[in-house]
Design a protein around this nucleic acid. Structure first.
Lengths: 197, 197, 197, 197
DNA sequence: AATGAATGAGTTTTCATTCAT
DNA sequence: CATGAATGAAAACTCATTCAT
């Protein structure tokens, strides 16, 4: 039982490394098997097909991704610091996962099922993130940095903030522009906080 | 010669339609040939390979894309209106091109060359966009809505704005969340303008 | 020991159901194991290989098949009734076993051994059937419906009758034509009896 | 164009030989390609998939099969001779095609489409055969060997005859029992004609 | 200029069977 | 007895690209 998990985990581990480096479609079952030190057909003993491996890799990765971000944000005290940390750490975490992250886009008409599952994963993650940011903004209000807002407005602001940060993510993913990151994070937080206050 | 252009254009047209619908990798040379009413090997007479077709499709698409956005923005007068129009029209234009746009992500290690070319196209487009936004912001200063800024600061602001809008783009591309778009555009413009003033 | 038999029988039972539904080749060892509630490798404790399971399934099935037909024929009195019953019941019994029956044909060069074994089973069954029909014809002679015949002729007639009925079987197996069955059985029996008298 | 047919025909020819010898499922695309002196993927240039090759092989084979039988029957004059020839030649023709013929049975639940197409082929063949036998029986009536019959009865008799002969076919296909064939054909024809007169 | 023919190098998946515990 | 883990060998199918005409 413990062994079962070890084997499965070692396959996922191998898959994750390869997929991080080469992307999902370029990572073949053969590659994964070889990297895990197993026979190709052994993979099919533990997973129904490639899709199931991808799902597992993505699920684990997103969870650990969120944990990293949350932990870093939790350690900061002020609204400003928390928001900046959120942006910076999120981006840094993404940089190690660019290829996995790109997956969201590898979507074609024919891959609908993959995406269905992916969307589920993604939704779970987004929910967690929204909660995190919401609590940060609530703290900003308690702190006095932000005005008091209606619940609906807070939800909207949360969404807006996440949306803007997603723009920064994209700069990273698409252009590898991360040199100016801390400055841009500062500016973004400054503008948003001022704009929202 | 004129004929040559007609053929080439009909191939690109066919390729564009297919790629818009199914994405780049799922669109095969065979599909394109069939849709263009030509033999598969004919494509290779006019283009070196699939990559070259993709480049051409993307290039044309980006140009027309930029033209749409610029034209709409130019018709507005105030800073506020221009920015909102920029966001709204850009997003609308993207919606018709989601799969083409997604291309930026279909990247795997092995497809580096494609990306190199894509990056060139993308850079050209970004430059045009930056110029457009810069001129809008400059107008905002002339209008008195924004403070006067150093050239470096203006560049930074431009980039920030573009970055935030890219976040909205992503909401569309990844989640098809466009129902709240006009509201969100309003809010975003409001916050940014206030934050920047 | 008794337990051993229970396990074996439950495996065969599972195999039979699956093979009846999906045919021999499409029924995998995994399917059988799952249906029997056992591990895949457990099957190999009780049977040397898949072939041995097939043999057992076929053997049991043919025996029960013959028992059904014989029992029905024995209950009839006259030659005419017995022959008609023979055809009708045989066909009905086959209808529940179409996929098993089809097995005789799943033969490829590589499956020669399977067929060798199958031929043995089949021969045993055919012998029983020939005996049954022979006794029916003998009764027909005693009854006066048929002329007296030499032993060799009787054997030949038996074979002919079985052969013709096999044609009806095939109509069922290949075309599922069984709607006209009772009529055709009547006609066939009539023609044969008249032709033979 | 002529060349196209040559290539296609040579593929079918290769496929036919292999399938006649080894059966459909044991004949792989690779085998066919090798036998045709082509690359594996070339097959897919000319046929959509394995199924399409099988269909073509079967279609051609059935046509030539029917032609052989019809030609032989046409050469005979009397009802008796025609019927006997029908049986004997049909069986002989089948003997060269046993493995192809067996195909009808290679059916599993999953192979439904193949069978749909096969059923179409088979139906076409059966129709031709029924017409042939019908004309033979009509001749038997003209000849005075058979009583005059209603159209419906004639159809029924035709079907019965074909059905009985199918039994003989099966003896060949399943048991390779063809040594006693001519005698059995004589007997069968005798019994049927007497039974029908 | 146009194209039908050909293909190499992959890719996922299947399954009967063996082995270590 | 039982079984989870492992696998080799094969199979069907794909696709960008080249070549001869």
């Amino acid at each position: 039982m413990d062994n079962e998990n070890t084997v499965i985990q070692s396959i996922i581990e191998a898959a994750r490394k390869l997929m991080q480096q080469y992307g999902f479609s370029k990572t073949t079952m053969e590659d994964i098997a070889k990297a895990a030190g197993k026979g190709k057909s052994t993979l099919y003993h533990h997973f129904k097909n490639k899709e199931e491996i991808i799902d597992e890799v993505l699920g684990q990765e997103m969870d650990s991704f969120f944990r990293e971000v949350k932990q870093a944000v939790d350690q900061e005290k002020s609204l400003h610091a928390k928001l900046k940390t959120y942006i910076v750490v999120k981006i840094q975490s993404i940089r190690h996962r660019v290829n996995l992250y790109r997956f969201a886009m590898e979507t074609d008409a024919s891959t609908l099922e993959i995406n269905t599952q992916f969307r589920r994963l993604r939704t779970r993650y987004d929910q967690q993130e929204a909660n995190l940011i919401l609590s940060v903004l609530t703290l900003g209000i308690a702190e006095g940095t932000l005005h008091h807002q209606s619940e609906a407005d807070l939800a909207m602001l949360t969404e807006l903030l996440v949306t803007c940060v997603r723009g920064v993510e994209m700069d990273i993913i698409m252009y590898n522009k991360h040199n100016t990151l801390p400055d841009k994070a500062d500016l973004l937080v400054g503008v948003l906080v001022k704009g929202l206050s």
